[in-house]
Design a protein around this nucleic acid. Structure first.
Lengths: 152, 152
DNA sequence: GTTGAAAAGTGCTGCGA
DNA sequence: TCGCAGCACTTTTCAAC
């Protein structure tokens, strides 16, 4: 289970992270192995939980979601973290949630349709969760970089 | 070019966002249209820039990247934003970069191997960029949610 | 714009080394 | 354990509605 990922595994991941639509046979050619080998490796990596699947990348603003914001959340007690997470799961606008060090207890990334929608999420949904003391909002005016980590 | 996305488009996106590996023919069955239609719609959505492609989801810690952090960046002058972005492009550890309202000029998400790697990125890479005054770091101790927006 | 089927290419499985 | 080859399935294309 705790198998060390070898060089070939990393090369496969590196190539497919750049372009998932690429065919296994094509990747195989570049790495000078057979298509079957890529398949076996990917299967193993998926079973190990290294590969968690694939995701369709869309442009949120094209489907009407124009606001991206980061919310710092102050909890009354840090220990309430787990219960609060459960309640936040139910807010679909929250796309990322982290338990963080520093000024905030939690840090969330949310995607909304417009400023009114953002206000709604903040006031009616987030602030009404028990234990949430106050929040701080950072609105993203421009997303300049959005990519994946590079594994070598 | 500025075509309004219709209900069928949204249904297709919604289904594929939940699972990209799903076959077009399978999606077609659920939506009671032919496989060819799904293909044509997806092609159109891709050409329009609504769909930006697909991405392989991996578990960063499984490939040795254990630290996820958010960095608030203060610039000497806000106007230096564009040039600074270009320099940040060259730091592969930065996976997201936003131009934000609020306390910081810019806000970045970075993924590192360990705390030493994080220190290296902060001190040697980020701080050495001209125009960067100081930074504030939030380290994510736990990522509780990571998902995509839900389009209805 | 949609359909249905035919053609091309891909992923998957079992056998051999 | 890895590589090769056949089978099943999918994507893609295209003529017709």
């Amino acid at each position: 289970m705790n198998y060390e990922i070898d060089k070939l595994d990393k090369q496969i991941l590196s190539l497919l992270m750049q372009d998932v639509t690429r065919a296994y046979t094509d990747v195989a050619k570049e790495l000078n192995v057979s298509g079957g080998t890529i398949h076996v490796r990917m299967k193993k990596l998926t079973e190990m939980g290294v590969v968690k699947g694939a995701q369709l990348l869309i442009n949120p603003s094209a489907v009407g979601f124009d606001i991206c914001a980061f919310i710092g959340v102050f909890l009354e007690k840090g220990s309430e973290y787990k219960e609060t997470v459960k309640k936040m799961q139910d807010i679909p606008e929250i796309v990322e949630l982290h338990y963080t060090t520093g000024a905030y207890s939690m840090f969330a990334k949310i995607i909304c349709r417009d400023t009114q929608h953002l206000r709604e999420v903040l006031n009616e949904k987030l602030q009404s969760i028990e234990g949430v003391q106050r929040t701080e909002t950072l609105i993203s005016l421009e997303e300049s970089i959005n990519r994946q980590i590079r594994i070598d």
